[in-house]
Design a protein around this nucleic acid. Structure first.
Lengths: 137, 137
DNA sequence: GGCTCGCTTTACGTTAACGTAAACGTCAGC
DNA sequence: GCTGACGTTTACGTTAACGTAAAGCGAGCC
């Protein structure tokens, strides 16, 4: 037990299966600077860091963000906070994201309320139809 | 006061200004079947119904839905519930949308939590820098 | 050695959601 | 009767996010 590297490495097809996407998409994310896997000769080797990033990517996509936006968000995580001015800009960006997400939350709440209403109406109609069928048939 | 039509009609530029989009986009939504304004000769005349639809469209876009998805959702609102089987399908679709929105909610909550954490860290670093500057300078 | 598998690069194709330009109609005002 | 402002149709251009096809490399098997 000399070196316990806890096999946190993945092949491209492996990751693709796990996240339900194609290898092509994963390579594309690399082209766009969202991933930077190691190499074994020509082959890509993904570590736990890439795994985390892919999870962030997928979450961002579910929220409707573009890959550019997602990259911005991801880059926030490992930014070097070396300059105070950059730190302030960074905090501003966080605020902006937060506001955007809050708007999304509100939109979702509104939409869910409307869906509830629609479903109530539909269930009412459905019950009505079936009651009528019972009375007639 | 014979006929109170409560001027609920808009021109295309008017709507564009109000929603912060271009007339081109509005015409595009029409092409895609999301809007169906009346006409005065060649000119489009939008009523309150179109106004509501545009609001739904913009909300859908903020949530990252495609125009096709948005049209599906909008069509739910004025579906003719004439057949029971269609009503059931309709309710199923509502459920699917609901689940998707719930996932989005969860994603947002997670992301907001991470943003909070990042901001805490950043503010800590920032305070540290300024304290150090005060001590040294 | 030949074959298959899995991965690679290169490059062209595709869909969505408009942008942009051209060319025309129309109505108010001068 | 001409000019602008605003609107129209038609059509080609653009960006994002991959899909897909072609051609080649390296490892393992028989």
């Amino acid at each position: 037990m000399a070196l316990d590297q806890t096999q946190t490495t993945y092949g491209i097809a492996e990751l693709a299966r796990e996240f339900g996407i194609t290898p092509r998409a994963i390579r594309f994310y690399e082209d766009k600077g969202l991933l930077s896997p190691a190499r074994d000769g020509q082959r890509r080797i993904y570590g736990s860091r890439d795994h985390v990033r892919l999870r962030l990517i997928m979450r961002g996509k579910r929220l409707g963000f573009s890959l550019d936006e997602i990259r911005e968000m991801i880059d926030l995580y490992d930014l070097d906070p070396t300059e105070v001015s950059q730190l302030k800009m960074f905090i501003d960006k966080l605020q902006a994201r937060r506001e955007q997400l809050r708007r999304q939350q509100d939109d979702i709440i509104e939409t869910l309320a409307e869906l509830d209403q629609l479903e109530d109406q539909s269930r009412g109609l459905l019950a009505d139809r079936e009651a009528r069928r019972k009375a007639v048939g």
